[in-house]
Computed example of a mutant assay.
Amino acid sequence: MAAEFGVGRSSAREVVQQLACDGLVEVRHGHGIFAADPGPADERSLSVHDGLCRARITGVFEVRRAVEVEAARLAAVRTAPEGIVALRTMLSEQRSLLGGDAWVFVTTDVRFHRAVVASARTDLLGELFEQLAQPLGDVLTELLDAPSLPDTTGDQEALVAALEVRDADAAALATTPHSDL
């Protein structure tokens, strides 16, 4: 399937997982992927399905917290001055998007966090973040709607300020509430 659509295997797997989480396909290991039965499902299967979707969302946020908090600690001692300027520019752009399209807002938010992780200058954390970025963006976009986009720029401003003064503990603290579900 990945080759047919010209995407990587991990991207194809993520799409299939999301479609299964949304109840649109059934994955039968060893047999293939099938369109889900559109007929009525009993309440028990719906609650299991809902529980699995909630577990996936919780898992994404748990991994996000682990990666971003440690990246913030490391970035506090490794971010170059031009990195601080770039983060402030992204933060300003994100503020201007409040009240707008959720997907654009989330894309900008993920880009900001990608830059913080890159500032940590640790390849493995960067790779972990890249694996997390797409599911994180999908989850955040699902959770948000345009009229109620949360203003997380205060947390992000505190993070940039901590990076600027090279305070690893303050950077981690500023990242923690932003990475909670």
Rank of each mutant, 00 (worst) to 15 (best):
M1I: 05
A3R: 13
G6R: 02
V15T: 07
V16M: 13
Q17F: 08
A20M: 07
L24A: 09
E26M: 07
G30W: 08
A35M: 09
S45K: 09
L46H: 11
H49T: 10
A55M: 09
I57S: 11
V67Y: 00
V77K: 01
A80D: 11
E82K: 07
T89Q: 14
L91D: 05
E93R: 15
L98G: 03
G99I: 03
V104N: 06
F105P: 03
F105K: 05
V106Y: 06
H113C: 04
V116W: 00
A118K: 01
S119E: 04
A120S: 04
A120V: 00
R121E: 11
T122N: 14
D123C: 03
L128R: 10
E130P: 02
Q131W: 05
Q131H: 10
Q134D: 10
G137K: 15
G137V: 06
G137M: 15
V139C: 13
V139Q: 12
L140I: 04
E142K: 04
D145K: 03
S148V: 08
L149H: 08
D151T: 04
T153R: 02
V160C: 00
L163M: 03
E164H: 05
E164Q: 13
A168H: 02
A171I: 00
A171Y: 00
A172C: 02
L173W: 06
L173P: 01
H178F: 12
H178A: 15
D180I: 12
